[in-house]
Write a protein that binds this DNA or RNA. Structure first.
Lengths: 256, 256
DNA sequence: ACTCTCTTTTGGTACTACCATTAAAAACCG
DNA sequence: CGGTTTTTAATGGTAGTACCAAAAGAGAGT
């Protein structure tokens, strides 16, 4: 007859959750600093008086929350991670991915966000940041002049520009939202970049916007943003209702 | 080190992650609908030709992402969860706990969000929604006239007003962001509501804003919002640099 | 029909053994 | 002595088995 007695310190309900909670609390209370290493699984197993599987599941949970990072091999183990904005962003991105979204809603939101961010960036960013933004915008433009641009690279550059701009607000919340959006909607944008028309105008717009920001001209910057999203909306509508989209005197070459 | 964009080379050697990714993909592609049940761990074990521990760790990861929910017992197992905003909110809350945000950042963001939402709400909301908003704002005001208001209820009402306003944009993204913020920052707000001063002015402001929205007066509404957040900023600064430790002489029953 | 018990399914825990990777120590050799 | 290679030990990752605990349904008994 085995001893079926549970004399453990962590016997309630799901042991793995209990372990995870205790470690998480230690991290949140800064009893363990980022960069520190947790004891090995086998040590924790003894410490919590439980099985290794339980420890592993607990660590797995903490890893999912981006609280720790797990390395293998000697000197491996669970290392406390530093906080990053992208962590919170990923979860929002996952949420967004599961929702079927009308493109108009996305565009509307992004435009409003861009406008707010731009105004803040103009008044907050330092010269270095502004310079970097303009430089990157020009790189984007240059890349588009090539006959066979790398789509993925373009998309990435666009993302980086957006995030760079968000950073310039010096407010991490905007950065967080922007990162989440970029993560969640990246696939959406890639299809857009297929259109030569969109690519060229986007690049030009980025350059114009960046220049307006560097020059400290918010109204000008906002005007470029409005133009950009107006164009985007038109393209969306054209894609959904491929009917003769001559709205104004806007010359669009529609040889897709 | 020049890099074309590398999507993660799918970290080989981690079977549990591979399993988790496959299931996650199936969920995201809606090959499995919310409410459906995944095969039991023992079945999955056979299907993926791996050990049960691997399966369990994969499921644990999906559970952390709030993609599935695990029940035990007969007819137990992993059930696909419906998507909910609170997921993103929780993750934001965790993010905030680890990296405390400056209140100014939060206030700044909320003000910009409120302004955008308000303008949209005025032009989009129908009469019914506007009426409901005003009604709820008045309830908030009424509650504050009582001598001993229920703090938790007040906070809840404030949250509902915010979300109701966000809904009125008829753009789900604003609603999600607002919900996530409400969840993530709820603890933050509660302390604010402790101040009598804040409570009264907030309630009055809500009423004014709601009336301006009903009346279709965006500028007036924005003005009230500006006033509200300006006041909030002042209170914050006062709280951080307490000139007088006096509590505004408001009576609190501290013995509950 | 109703209640109670039993059985089956299924997640949760424990334990063991072995593999793969990694960093550090030891051995090697010029 | 100095650099290189090999060995070793620490540690996460996987496999497999056994058993426990909860939950739902089937079946027995009234």
């Amino acid at each position: 007859m085995k001893s079926t007695i549970q004399f453990s310190p962590v016997t309630m309900g799901r042991a793995s959750e209990e372990v995870a909670l205790q470690i998480e609390a230690a991290i949140l209370d800064q009893k363990i600093a980022p960069g520190d290493r947790l004891p090995s699984e086998r040590e924790l197993q003894l410490h919590f008086n439980t099985s290794r599987g339980v420890i592993r599941e607990a660590l797995q949970a903490l890893k999912q929350k981006s609280l720790i990072e797990i390395k293998k091999g000697a000197k491996g183990g669970a290392y406390i991670k530093a906080v990053e904005v992208s962590t919170a962003g990923e979860s929002l991105a996952l949420f967004i991915k599961r929702q079927p979204l009308a493109p108009q809603h996305l565009i509307e939101f992004r435009e409003s966000l861009d406008r707010t961010i731009t105004v803040l960036a103009i008044s907050r960013a330092n010269e270095q940041e502004k310079h970097d933004l303009l430089a990157k915008a020009r790189i984007l433009e240059t890349m588009l002049e090539q006959s066979d641009p790398d789509m993925l690279l373009l998309g990435e550059l666009d993302r980086e520009l957006n995030i760079m701009l968000a950073k310039m607000t010096h407010n991490p919340i905007f950065e967080w939202i922007m990162q989440a959006l970029q993560l969640g909607f990246s696939s959406n944008d890639l299809t857009l970049y297929q259109g030569m028309d969109y690519r060229e105008k986007t690049a030009e717009n980025w350059k114009n916007t960046a220049e307006a920001i560097v020059g400290g001209e918010p109204l000008k910057a906002l005007s470029h943003i409005s133009y950009h999203y107006a164009m985007l909306l038109r393209l969306m509508e054209k894609a959904e209702h491929p009917v003769h989209p001559v709205q104004d005197g806007f010359a669009t070459n529609t040889d897709d």
